[in-house]
Design a binder for these strands. Structure first.
Lengths: 233, 233
DNA sequence: ATTCGGGATTTAAATATTTCAATGCCTCAG
DNA sequence: CTGAGGCATTGAAATATTTAAATCCCGAAT
């Protein structure tokens, strides 16, 4: 794994206090005193598309807070099948399973330019003991991951292929902050939906012919959410 | 909802201290002093097959520890589609989302005779503040639910119908403590796998003809796990 | 501007799944 | 014992998806 940049200019949590997206991250409820308990360095890291934060089966000792970008969690079966089981974006945590001492359940692969903060498990565990202000944040994120997984099953793994593709596009659109959204490759979309690349392509091509989906440069796209929802969900 | 029995003979946590399956439940790490902090009644409840612990969208104020039996979590979509997203059994928690103040994400429906203990959310939250001994148990259960959901996606919602049915049977078999296991209706199995009742039936019938699956009375069944795994996964 | 390479899209044929409509089978109430 | 009701199973036809094999298209590099 090639890590592009690790910025350790600030030791400990000095920078955390001034983090621009602090209200979105795990540490949002910490007090100033809590921050002073953080003596280990929290690395600010950047990953290129295609790089992995960690591999399925790897023994990881950190949790990652996503500051920017999109990450796919890929799970492999013994027989070689693989499935994307979740997408992570700003404010989500990757590698939660490390808090239970488990090895990674998935490959965590960056889809675009990703910025994360790496939080050592030992730090999280110590903070949990010393301050109650972390709990709710952790619980919330766990719960969000779980309901995300449930939705993945109900919305993205149920029904006809076209319907699933429509639901995925709607989900990507909703998750995006601007008018447009990141459109994964057809192969990745297929792996999210449990259908083939070709079936995915057929659906997106159809939506495009209907004017419900427009591709812009750079993996970005736009949909007519109303109409798509109306006609295909 | 018809609740068969609520046994409140013991107030507070007196009975918890002597619970036969305490090592499996959320309170396993509590100390004797911790138990003395429990002043609210913890109801011991029993449900018949088909009864619901709660409904999707319902505002629930308790978490349920499963002592015995099997529960399906059913999620409904606006368009009427529905999917079973998880099965809960001994030691699992139902209604975790109530800890975040959310309404229930699913219907929790009993598949067989179910025994649960009902833990008020307010109790959990207070204990969380007063003792650190609950955290790990909670974290562990959240994590178990999450990796269960991931597996549900990767193993039960991916691949051909026959393969999914085989994987479900293997999973039911593994989860069981004895040689046999609870075999749900074909309809429920279909709802777990995202396929039709008929497709499920065709698969189980085929396994039965091959001698890999045998039905015993009362929803119980046996499989030749080795062979099933070998030939269909 | 031109070429190259990697996705994306298409098509037709092969499979798989769903639909729909009958039976079949088992249990339980009477 | 017997019939009724509720699942389960089966078969055939209608659809949907996958497979396999060409193109097609677009952006990056020359």
């Amino acid at each position: 794994m090639q890590i592009d940049k690790i910025d350790r200019a600030w030791r400990g949590a000095e920078r955390c206090k001034h983090c621009a997206i602090r209200h979105l991250v795990l540490f949002s409820d910490l007090t100033h005193e809590d921050f002073d308990r953080i003596h280990q360095p929290i690395d600010d890291m950047e990953f290129e598309p295609g790089q992995r934060l960690y591999y399925q089966g790897e023994n990881i000792s950190s949790v990652y807070t996503i500051r920017a970008g999109l990450i796919k969690l890929v799970q492999h079966l013994p027989n070689g099948d693989r499935r994307i089981v979740r997408l992570l974006s700003q404010g989500d945590l990757a590698g939660l399973e490390s808090l239970n001492g488990q090895v990674a359940d998935h490959d965590a692969v960056c889809l675009d330019l990703v910025q994360v903060c790496r939080l050592p498990v030992s730090l999280i565990q110590r903070l949990q003991k010393e301050t109650p202000n972390l709990h709710q944040g952790l619980i919330n994120r766990w719960q969000k991951a779980l309901s995300g997984a449930d939705n993945w099953i109900t919305r993205l793994s149920t029904g006809k292929a076209r319907q699933r593709v429509a639901r995925l596009l709607l989900l990507l659109d909703q998750a995006s902050t601007d008018d447009f959204f990141f459109l994964p490759t057809r192969e990745d979309m297929g792996a999210m939906l449990g259908i083939t690349t070709e079936s995915t392509s057929k659906a997106t091509a159809e939506f495009r012919r209907l004017g419900l989906l427009k591709k812009l440069g750079q993996n970005r796209a736009w949909i007519d959410a109303e109409a798509l929802q109306q006609q295909f969900c």
